[in-house]
Design a protein around this nucleic acid. Sequence first.
DNA 1: TTTAGGG
DNA 2: CCCTAAA
Length: 658
Amino acid sequence: MEQKKIPRLVSSAPCAISRLNRGGAPISVWRAEQGEGILVGGPQDALDNRSDDNDFDKNDNSDPVVYQLVRVEGDGTLIPATEDEVLQFETFLHDEKVDDDLPSIDDVTHVEEYFTNDCIVKKPEFEEGPSKLDTADVQTQKLDAGLEEDRLCTLNDSIVLPSNCSAVHDQQLDKLNTEQGANIIAQQDNASTETTKSTVLNDLSSDKEKADACSKPVNEASAGQSVSGVTSSVPDFSILKGEVCLDDLTMRELQEAFRATFGRQTTVKDKLWLKRRIAMGLINSCDVPSSGCVVRDYKVIAMGAKQEIPVVEAIPKMELEANLVRDQVMNPGHERDLPSSLSYHSEEQQRSSKRLKRVPTDNDEPQVTIFAEQGTTKRIRKPTKRYIEELSDIDTHESTGRLSSPGKRHVYDEVLLRPRIAPLHEVDSLSTAYPTREDTLGGCSVHVPYVSRMRRGRPRSNFIPFLDPEPSVECTEAPAADVVNLEKEGERKNHKNTGKKGVHVETSGEKDVQGLQDKDFCNSDDNPKTKRDGKRKHHRAWTLCEVVKLVDGVARYGAGKWSEIRRLAFSSYSYRTSVDLKDKWRNLIRASQTQLSTENDGVCPRKSNPSAIPIPVSILLRVKKLAEMQSQAGDVRVPIKFSGQSTTVVQGKVSGFL
DNA sequence: TTTAGGG
DNA sequence: CCCTAAA
């Protein structure tokens, strides 16, 4: 069985070590309590369903003692100790081993208790071992300090287990206890301590006791000694002396017997349970009948018709017990064991839920309960509350996360993601304004040019064509206003063209020249588009008007006086900077040179740049002239008159494109 | 800031 | 057009 897999000695911080003597030999229980956990000891047999058990059942003292260290969880479940834990208790184990040969129950005189950092361990002692006791006492004292409950019990007389023992629920036992409780005399002082615990955790205690049942205490004397520290706790071992039928015992007596058997008090009032426990303890086996056990000098000499406790399906509380019982059933016919154990598992599983409900006990016997379970338990063990909670939390988080997120998302999506497109007209009206849409960026909503998501390539290309055609000779003066407004990117050009006509206004080359300093002609406006911060300024094609003005300006003020020209002639074109003028002039010069030359050649002016505005030849000539003049004569020359002429000239010749 | 040039 | 050096 799986149980076999369980380390012989299992322990953990709070844990218990049980020592069993299969042969029905004395069972000593090392129990330690600490924190939530409890050290419990139990017959390995209980754990192992092996054929050996039979031998064991026969009270073969020869059977080696088996220890089992388990950890008692808060919920009362038992978990096989880990190796580490086992290591912690190794010492004890060794000690135990020494004792292994231990004597059968008869021999056992008492149980020593050891208290360790992590747990208290009871060590069985033999009567002969008073000396041991002494030794043990020291340790015992330690134990006492920490653990009052544990006591050594010795049973002198045999006890007859009540033959009627049948599976009973703790509750039932309780009843019995109540009814018969008075009979037992045991020192309850000691018990008191435990009592409290057990009382509180009756169910658990019962379980625990079951577990305890597996082990057994012993000698009165030794008990007394060992218990020295715990005076009141000395169990009445005599109760088990001689031949006793457990069935005949009162609740009190049973409890006492229990105490005598396990060295500790129990508050369990379930007679049936007690009887079985005692029997189990005495035979060091879980295989015991629920009733009809007769105990003689600490040995079970007769098992009642094994009424195998129909295990407990119906019995809730007894779940563990039942299980335990099953495992412990003395019945030689262990064949049952296997099956039972199996069934047990299933039961366990079924009941696992119930277990969880149990109140965590410190150390009550009840917890000790089923070793067999251990394995199973471990396997079956359900997630702890905490675990569950955590999971739920996680789920919650997740769910919330998911849910909330999504929910929020939706909201955001709707609100934020929903693109908000500014009406186009707005854009038009405000050259600077772009259609934008709200978008979320890093959680912040920002306005992004709606355009950005649109394909520009296409549209733009469309526009461009329009542009080109345009340069109507006339006044190139771009209607500032219009231009400005419409202008935006490539599109602007188209508008410009159209706008130009509409706006058009002044400007003729002459005018420019004449009115270079006039401020009026070209509408100025467009500050808007002009420069934008770090970004490249919006491209603005030079209009003929502008060119003329520029030329006039140069003629009048001389090349290089860009700022002046700009100030005087381009006041209305805020978007043209002195630099722009300079650049343009430069370009004009180049153009004049190339173009003119080309023209001369008869070759048509470069068409290379269709989009370029054709510049009247007159202007080009004029430019050329001016250029030459400037280059030659330094500066001062360019006076106004010059410009006048040039203007004239240009006009006359106007035939080229800019 | 303005110019002049290069890019 | 931009950028920058030079003035």
